[in-house]
Design a protein around this nucleic acid. Structure first.
Length: 574
RNA sequence: CGGGGCGUAGCGUAGUGGCUAGCGCGCCUGCUUUGGGAGCAGGAGACCGAGAGUUCGAAUCUCUCCGCCCCGACCA
């Protein structure tokens, strides 16, 4: 029983000045966490109990799925990360340190290498596979910008699993098993979430999905179709546009459009001089960029911006992507700023990409590659040839769902889990092979699966809190029942104590506010702030032999005879 | 790293050149009080983020550094 008279806890009446988001504010106010440095927090008793509750649920579900728990050091030698080139590739996010002899170490930001090497050290036959291992570990990443309290820290707790299979089919199966286990886990954690398609990126591999907990303060933006359930990270959102029949489109015509370097100015001049009700969506924007040192042009409809994040995610292997600057225009005099068109792009040394909205056969108004002139009736496939299609235009609310064409909505969320097929990258780099049934050496294929454990504390707080404070699901809360002894009579404290013991015998975790000096108001406020699901008040009603039972979530109140209270509470918690 | 803001007691804050740095919460002592963050009285707690400078005098002005928060590019 957690007795508040002795519990190491001090709640704060005021919001901490450095906390913006609700989870951060409330976790600090309710005495769950304290900040130590940017993105680094200490866990006080209530916070640590909550964190461990989440760990327990995750552990139970992982074990249930047949995955086995291991544990690696957080302090790791440089060598393992050298072989996969991550000592350098991981960049400034890696916490590096030296021992007294000057040998390099790092604080693990993730443990792919260690898991791969561990399996390599023990197993060498296809008969040993499939295998899934996991750990719950503290990770270290020297984030550019730690943010939102516990949501993005530089030290955080993560559950990471890895699967090892001989074949791609096997990997698929392992992936699905993790997916199912994650669904069960997040359901038990009492979270609302969407499973969205994500980019597997440069890591290779085919499938990748994120578990996103919708929440306005989240840092991830995703697309959701309310009709068919399609959900995708904006980077992974697909655009489906049918090819058009260009028959009947008049020949390309170059027209004089003075002082029209922007889409808005162009549309105004076009309508004024040529009529026809042009809009930005009829124009073609040629966005020039430098991708790893090479000049590229990306075509998007004039009423949309290029989403650099999306573009880069969809250009595999491109590390460095930036917009053209004046110096780049100076080096390429054939490219007329504000009047670039895709006609003959290749002869200007550009690789020409188009957003799928620029479908084959569609006709556009675009630059004429001549200062002050634009071209009408410029048809894709007739007047220019693209080198490739790439998702690059910004995604908007109301865009067509790629599955059912209904308008999609855009929402924000916290990423709480990510599963993806790693493939053979790490196994290859670290030479993890097994002998197959023919005695041939085969490289193992892997999957990687993460849950942000400490982040889940914040995500659940975000999704469940109200204006009074935290408001935990019953399996997460520090206690299921919070008994408030509201009065000064010894008898009342004895009854509260006895009720607490009875509830504990029934298997519930109990917090008892047995502070003699605190007023009832203080105790009620604290109980609401701390957020346990059932609050039992032993107070005034005791003259009739009753206690009051309140549900934190709904505010619903009822009374029960002391003798029946435990049974009533059990009913409410089931 | 770019842009914006902040650093005064455990927490929230006032104080923009002048004398013992003010207030609320919390904490300690005593008395009263106990169903919605109690009252009265007394008390402890701050080298005003650090260093240097300007000045008769600096929390306050200047410079440098450090730390923290928010907005953008990476990630559980």
């Amino acid at each position: 029983m957690l007795r508040m008279s002795t519990l190491f806890l001090r709640t704060l009446r005021d919001d901490p000045s450095d906390a913006e988001v609700a989870s951060h504010r409330l976790l600090v106010r309710a005495g769950y966490i304290r900040r130590i440095a940017a993105g680094i927090y200490s866990w006080l008793p209530l916070g640590y109990i909550t964190l461990r509750n989440i760990e327990r649920i995750i552990r139970e579900e992982m074990d249930e799925a047949g995955f086995q728990e291991v544990h690696f050091p957080a302090l790791l030698p440089r060598e393992a990360y050298e072989e996969t080139n991550r000592w350098t590739e991981y960049g400034p996010d890696l916490f590096r340190l030296k021992d007294r002899r000057g040998t390099d170490y790092l604080l693990g930001p993730t443990h792919e290498e260690m898991f791969t090497l561990m399996v390599k050290g023990e197993y060498s036959s296809y008969k040993d596979l499939p295998l899934s291992l996991y750990q719950i570990q503290t990770k270290y990443r020297d984030e550019l910008r730690p943010r939102s309290g516990i949501i993005r820290g530089r030290e955080f707790v993560m559950k990471d699993s890895y699967s090892f299979d001989l074949t791609d089919e096997g990997l698929n199966e392992s992936y699905n098993k993790h997916r199912d286990a994650y669904i069960k886990t997040f359901d038990r954690l009492g979270m609302r979430y969407n499973i969205v398609s994500a980019m597997s990126g440069a890591m290779g591999g085919s499938r990748s999905e994120e578990f996103l907990a919708p929440c306005p303060t989240g840092e991830d933006t995703y697309v959701l179709c309310e009709k068919c359930g399609y959900a995708a990270n904006v980077e992974a959102m697909k655009t489906i546009v049918a090819a058009a029949d260009p028959t009947g489109v008049p020949a390309m015509e170059v027209v004089d459009t003075p002082n029209t370097p922007t889409i808005d100015s162009l549309v105004a001049v076009l309508n004024e001089r040529y009529g026809g009700g042009f809009t930005g969506a009829d124009t073609l924007k040629n966005v020039l960029l430098v991708a790893d040192g090479k000049n590229i042009s990306v075509l998007v409809p004039g009423d949309r911006e290029v989403d650099l994040k999306r573009l880069q995610a969809n250009l595999p292997g491109v590390q460095d992507l930036r917009l053209f600057e004046d110096a780049d225009f100076a080096r390429n005099p054939a490219l007329v700023k504000g009047y670039v068109g895709p006609q003959n792009s290749q002869s200007f040394g550009l690789t020409l990409y188009a957003d799928p909205r620029i479908a084959p056969g569609t006709s556009w108004v675009t630059g004429a590659n001549k200062h002050g002139f634009h071209a009408l009736n410029v048809v894709n496939g007739r007047d220019f040839e693209v080198d490739g299609y790439v998702e690059s235009a910004e995604v908007r609310k109301g865009d067509a769902c790629p599955q059912c064409s209904e308008p999609v909505v855009i929402d924000r969320a916290i990423e709480i889990g990510h599963i993806f097929q790693l493939g053979r990258k790490y196994a290859e780099a670290l030479d993890l092979t097994v002998l197959d049934s023919d005695g041939k050496s085969r490289v193992v294929t892997m999957g990687s699966y993460g849950i942000g454990v400490s982040r889940a504390v914040a995500a659940i707080a975000e999704q469940t809190h109200d204006e009074l404070g935290l408001n935990w699901p019953k399996e997460i809360a520090p206690a299921q029942v919070h008994i408030v002894a509201a009065g000064k009579d010894d008898h009342l404290f004895d009854v509260a104590e006895e009720l607490g013991k009875e509830l504990e015998r029934a298997g519930y975790k109990v917090m008892l506010d047995d502070r003699r000096e605190a007023s009832p108001g203080v105790k009620f406020k604290d109980a609401e702030l701390i957020g346990n699901p059932v609050i039992v008040v032993v107070g005034k009603a005791l003259v009739e032999g009753k206690v009051e039972i309140r549900l934190r979530r709904t505010g619903q109140r009822s009374e029960a005879l002391v003798a029946d209270a435990a049974k009533e509470i059990a009913g409410l918690l089931s």
